[in-house]
């Protein structure tokens, strides 16, 4: 198959209205993709965000967080996915959501911990000196100041999850990765190329939207770059 043939069939595939519609169409798969990503991020946030904020607020007992985050870099997402899919968790979307939540938790945890730790000590002491209780200081003073970095962690985790949901197709799950894996299996390289571009565009869109959201959340004087390292 020549290169221009692939490009041609990629365009033909994208121009076919039937490819976009129906339960296995691009529209439905995109929604499924984003739904799985949303579930994984939500799951990770519910566990990691309160834990990171609490550990950072307490001020001690969180130094293992950064090494833990770096260690998860070494574990391939695919390995955890296949371990889950071969154990009691079952095939398809469920093991994917759980595995991706495991990978989304460390950046959220590490960033919220760092964010809370970086809140100026004197600001915290001033809040206590004004008669605020520890909980009130946390809610009214520390959390608002920590918000930009917390948001950066959520953004890193979300972009990483949206990218990795494509792997669900390897364990019988859905999402846009389905078109890639099926395309390779049936040697339809036009479909493969088109689906790859669709996934890339989706990831870039999500990244751009979240960057905008993070910017809006951040008070103007605090606007700087992002915090943690991204990973796909």
């Amino acid at each position: 198959m020549r290169g221009d043939d692939v490009l041609g069939s990629a365009f033909r595939w994208l121009n076919d209205p039937l490819v976009w519609q129906g339960p296995g169409g691009i529209g439905a798969r995109t929604l499924e993709h984003l739904g799985m990503a949303g579930a994984a991020v939500l799951l990770a946030t519910v566990v990691a965000l309160p834990l990171g904020v609490w550990l950072g607020h307490r001020g001690r007992g969180g130094s293992w967080l950064i090494p833990l985050t770096n260690t998860t870099l070494a574990l391939p997402t695919l390995a955890l996915l296949m371990i889950f899919a071969s154990s009691g968790v079952g095939f398809g979307n469920r093991p994917t959501v759980i595995a991706l939540a495991v990978f989304a938790a460390p950046p959220i945890l590490a960033n919220s911990w760092t964010a809370m730790r970086e809140v100026d000590r004197s600001v915290r002491e001033a809040a206590r000196g004004m008669g605020m209780s520890s909980a009130r200081s946390l809610a009214r003073v520390e959390l608002p100041l920590a918000l930009p970095l917390v948001a950066a962690g959520l953004r890193t985790a979300s972009v990483q999850v949206v990218a990795s949901v494509s792997l669900a197709a390897f364990v019988g799950g859905g999402g846009l990765g389905r078109f890639l894996v099926d395309g390779f299996a049936t040697r339809r390289y036009g479909q493969v190329l088109a689906a790859a571009v669709l996934i890339a565009v989706l990831c870039l869109l999500v990244e751009a939207l979240l960057a905008l959201g993070q910017r809006l959340l951040t008070p103007v004087p605090l606007r700087t770059g992002r915090g943690a390292v991204a990973r796909s």
Partner: peptide, 18 residues
């Protein structure tokens, strides 16, 4: 940075047909 946002799976799938 833009390149980094593209998932590896999609990148491999884009390079292979070339």
């Amino acid at each position: 940075g833009v390149l980094y946002t593209v998932p590896a799976l999609a990148l491999f799938a884009m390079i292979y047909p070339l």
